[in-house]
Design a protein around this nucleic acid. Structure first.
Lengths: 152, 152
DNA sequence: GTCTCTGCAAAGCCTTTGCAACGCT
DNA sequence: AGCGTTGCAAAGGCTTTGCAGAGAC
């Protein structure tokens, strides 16, 4: 258990309560991590590790459970890149897609940019009701193509 | 081992040899399964099960290994829907995308339909070199929306 | 005959589950 | 106080790996 050393209720507290969820330190921590500008597109394990570094008793299964609940509540969304699931705040900044760099693993967000028209038309032609659209482009990012690896 | 009861070399034999791979009964079987009109978008396990029903000694790990090799050779392509990887003959019938029905699990192919222009433009704006594009639309297919379940 | 591939069995990884204690409301 | 949550530990499912024998060329 994380105990009383947790930060006072923040935005994430309100967010949770509004979604009808109990506001626990664990859930707040996960939301805070995903909300951080530097921490988008994290895997469940990334999130657990970051959370555990703040609160050593944070359990891995809790990370999975919290993420599942937040997804169910529509607060977080899950995308599968390659072999592992990545999580991010839902609809941030709006419907968007992903550019995944094969060299450095970076993931950039891509604004919708009129894609909805096309997918809508495609789906209509097939009598298909759209629930979600996932577009992922894999390749090499600008930095890597120049031979500069932003991370690695 | 599958032994001498295997079908004579077919198209798949030539395909394999052209890719610089040895033509083994196992590889031919996997290719044949994926080539069958009814057997598109199979998981590794689907493929193994179907292969094993033809040749009981067909090992599960062989299915995984063969699929990996065929992917590396560019003969087969892998896509991840939800929780599991699906395999299909690469570029069949050409670049295409997927409509996945959440009710019945059916997977329909979707022709490219001018999507390449959009993705190309998106990537160019980000200085990104495209290696692959994956578009998956999830929702409900025509039959399921009508309340008719094609399978299940 | 050589070098690769396969079958077998075991391990690995990510994720889920059962249960009792804990803590949010 | 009551019921949802968490930590812990163990199991589960899919996938990979090491090895020796079998097979393709």
């Amino acid at each position: 258990m994380i105990g009383t050393a947790m930060p006072a209720p923040t935005d994430s507290h309100t967010l949770l309560r509004r979604a009808g969820l109990r506001s626990t330190p664990q859930r707040q921590t996960v939301l805070d991590l995903l909300g951080d500008g530097d921490h988008r597109h994290l895997t469940a394990d990334d999130i657990w590790r970051a959370a555990a570094s703040r609160h050593p008793s944070f359990n891995r299964s809790t990370a999975y459970r919290v993420l599942e609940q937040l997804c169910d509540a529509g607060i977080v969304q899950q995308t599968r890149f390659g072999d592992s699931a990545h999580f991010e705040i839902a609809g941030a900044p709006q419907r968007h897609y992903h550019l995944v760099c094969r060299s450095c693993g970076s993931i950039e967000n891509l604004p919708s940019d009129g894609l909805a028209d096309i997918t809508g038309r495609m789906a209509r032609q097939h009598g298909f009701t759209i629930r979600s659209v996932d577009l992922t482009i894999e390749g090499e990012c600008r930095s890597c193509r120049r031979g500069v690896s932003p991370r690695v």
